[in-house]
């Protein structure tokens, strides 16, 4: 892809496949996902539950555990002033992997309650991350931790450092988790639904915080969410996932204002708009099929309003294609559109 090479890429994921071996057979939770993250940008991965967005994020940090495994593909990080690292080729216990985890790439998890240890103080937990990745003394680490807590907007960081997670409210806990993730100045931050468990008022503050920290520190962010409102506020680029595959990828404005894939269109339409008592919400019919019984052809065709019999329901999955206008979409209908514009 010539267009991508010109950009300053910090992470590239190519044809990633993650499978889970279960009693019902081998399920592909992520099937051929390809995307790249530009340095200093925010990429949002959007999709419904069980579409593989978290699994994608976990595999970037090699956190997939048995019975799951990365079955194929490449994940390459391009750190600043360092040679690129192929994450998929690293062995489970290599030093390099430990450096990548938490040092180069760090993660914010959904539940601020479960992401923190209840039996260690906040200071203890933040300093642990610093001491693991930097050669500093305990004193320096503590100073660093206080500074970071101040940055994420926690009042009286010196006192708060001595406290345990149960002494913090949900929003404050999420701030601590963000501080922990950013304290080693990672190049990439993966945020897995960081605001889903929070109230809208607190969500607004956390989004604001992530945005301003991202701007100040120049971190590249992969933001996983199912909330299209949040996407509009934080992302530069958006990748939409359905059943383990990317269906559409473009800038946030393009995806939200002019969606090409019928799934993206359906998702946007089914959001209750800010109008009072409209007649009925347009909804996507049917349910998300189970990974054990994937439909043939395009996995979305049984729910797709524009599905073309004989085109969408046969053959293999449609692959991600670049349309003449530069947009990436994997849809048989879009392919038809491409052929039409050619002739």
């Amino acid at each position: 892809m010539s267009q991508d090479e010109k950009k300053d890429i910090v992470l590239s994921v190519k044809d990633l496949k993650v499978t889970f071996t279960t009693e019902e057979g081998v399920l592909s939770a992520v099937d051929g996902v390809t995307f790249s993250l530009e340095r200093g940008k925010v990429l949002a991965i959007v999709g419904e539950s069980a579409c593989g967005k978290s699994v994608t994020a976990f595999s970037i940090l090699r956190l997939i555990q048995k019975p799951g495994q990365i079955a194929g593909g490449k994940i390459i990080v391009y750190p600043k002033n360092k040679p690129p690292i192929d994450i998929t080729s690293l062995t489970e216990k290599s030093d390099m992997l430990y450096q990548v985890r938490g040092g180069l790439i760090s993660m914010i998890f959904q539940e601020p309650m479960t992401a923190l240890s209840p039996v260690h103080t906040i200071g203890n937990q933040i300093c642990e991350a610093i001491l693991l990745h930097q050669s500093v003394t305990n004193k320096e680490a503590e100073k660093h931790a206080i500074e970071m807590l101040g940055k994420v907007g926690i009042p009286q960081p010196e006192r708060r450092l001595q406290q345990y997670p149960h002494e913090f409210s949900g929003g404050m806990r999420q701030r601590v988790v963000i501080a922990m993730a950013l304290v080693c100045q990672p190049e990439i931050l993966i945020a897995d639904e960081p605001t889903t468990a929070l109230d809208v008022t607190i969500q607004a503050q956390i989004l604001d915080l992530i945005k301003s920290l991202q701007r100040d520190l120049g971190t590249s962010v992969i933001f996983i969410t199912h909330d299209l409102g949040v996407v509009a506020q934080i992302a530069d680029d958006v990748a939409v996932m359905y059943l383990g595959r990317l269906v559409e990828q473009a800038s946030v404005r393009a995806v939200l204002k002019d969606p090409l894939h019928p799934y993206t269109t359906g998702l946007l339409k089914s959001l209750p708009r800010n109008e009072t008592k409209q007649a009925r919400l347009p909804s996507i019919t049917g349910n998300v099929p189970s990974l054990t019984h994937l439909p043939t052809g395009c996995p979305f065709h049984p729910r797709c309003p524009d599905s073309i019999p004989g085109v969408c329901d046969v053959g293999d999955n449609p692959v991600m294609e670049r349309l003449p206008n530069g947009r990436l979409v994997s849809c048989c209908g879009a392919r038809k559109f491409k052929e039409m514009t050619k002739t």
Partner: peptide, 11 residues
């Protein structure tokens, strides 16, 4: 505090 699904409406 409601985020709108429109990148032109800022929070």
């Amino acid at each position: 505090a409601i985020p709108h699904p429109d990148p032109d409406i800022k929070l």
